[in-house]
């Protein structure tokens, strides 16, 4: 029992002893999310780091019912779970799909699109470590421009990732989803508040959680939260919500340098200042656009 008030809900639904790497941001994401949902939650997880992290049979770090499913079917799986609960008239359960960026933005996007279009009452969370980490750091469509991965190597011809990161939240907005948001493990209270909002939605919800990965991003494990904070302060990963089409962007006085953020991580270290300069321009452009979306939609 806490003598003094703890910053977050005390109950742990993710036990210690999971097999995530040292300093894995995906573990923060899970721990905080489950603090928000509470125990009346069913979680479905496809192939991704989190397919392994719960432990090896007969171990599990979860204190909630948990189902492993195939890489591309998270949204179909939670649609099935919700339908089954509906069939038996069970209403007070949060149905949570939890997938990586590859399982969401690449191979699972079809099932996700179907679920959101149908209006299924379920929460879908993409924890974003910006590559296929489970299989050893291959690029996904969520890998940011400029990044090295094992399938976008720098080499002689500088074949690092050339395409920009796919924006899943905007894709969700285009579906007319009632609630979607970005969240960052460096702001756990904000993350928890967003998960709680998503739980209350009578329909689909989608949260994109920024979850740095020391192993794949090539930085020391104690820097996870620092890097996460910098990403948002540098506007690379803006925190915003879209509720029924209305944007709310979280503003920060504090700023961080994009260049410094990138130079802290081995995956970006090959970039020249010129290259970083052009990446920074696109970051600013998107952030300004977001503010315009906010202005436009809040006025309506």
């Amino acid at each position: 029992m806490a003598g003094k008030k703890l910053p977050l809900p005390e109950e742990e639904l993710m036990d210690p002893g999971h097999v995530g790497c040292l300093g894995c941001g995906g573990c923060h994401a899970m721990r905080y999310t489950l603090k928000a949902t509470g125990p009346r939650t069913i979680i479905s997880i496809p192939a991704c780091c989190w397919a392994v992290m719960p432990g090896v049979y007969p171990n599990t770090c979860f204190n909630i019912p948990h189902i492993n499913t195939a890489f591309e079917v998270t949204a179909a799986s939670i649609s099935g779970i919700r339908a089954a609960l509906d069939a038996r008239g069970i209403e007070d359960i949060t149905v949570l799909g939890w997938a990586g960026d590859g399982g969401t933005a690449d191979i699972g996007i079809q099932a996700l699109s179907g679920m959101v279009e149908r209006g299924t009452k379920a929460m879908y969370i993409m924890y974003d470590n910006e590559a296929y980490m489970n299989t050893g750091i291959q690029r996904s469509s969520s890998t940011p421009i400029g990044a090295w991965t094992t399938t976008t190597q720098v080499g002689k011809v500088r074949d690092y990732k050339r395409a920009p990161k796919k924006n899943m939240v905007e894709i969700m907005v285009a579906h007319g989803i009632p609630y979607t948001a970005t969240a960052n493990i460096a702001w756990p209270k904000d993350l928890i508040a967003k998960v709680k909002k998503a739980m209350a939605v009578d329909g689909p919800s989608f949260i994109h959680i920024f979850a740095p990965c020391p192993t794949g991003w090539r930085y020391p494990p104690d820097r996870t939260l620092e890097i996460a904070r910098m990403a948002t302060h540098a506007k690379i990963f803006p925190l915003y919500e879209v509720e029924n089409g209305v944007y709310t962007v979280k503003k920060f006085k504090k700023e961080a340098s994009i260049s410094e953020y990138m130079m802290m991580q081995g995956r970006f270290r090959h970039l020249t200042q010129e290259e970083i300069g052009s990446i920074s321009e696109s970051v600013v452009r998107w952030y300004d656009k977001l503010l315009k979306f906010e202005l436009m939609t809040q006025e309506e």
Binding site: I67, T69, V73, A83, A84, Q110, E117
Partner: peptide, 19 residues
């Protein structure tokens, strides 16, 4: 569903939920 692949995935998860 948006595909047969998802149809079967939904069946499996629903069945595991007990229906």
């Amino acid at each position: 569903v948006e595909s047969e692949h998802s149809a079967m995935a939904a069946c499996i998860s629903a069945a595991l939920t007990g229906v």
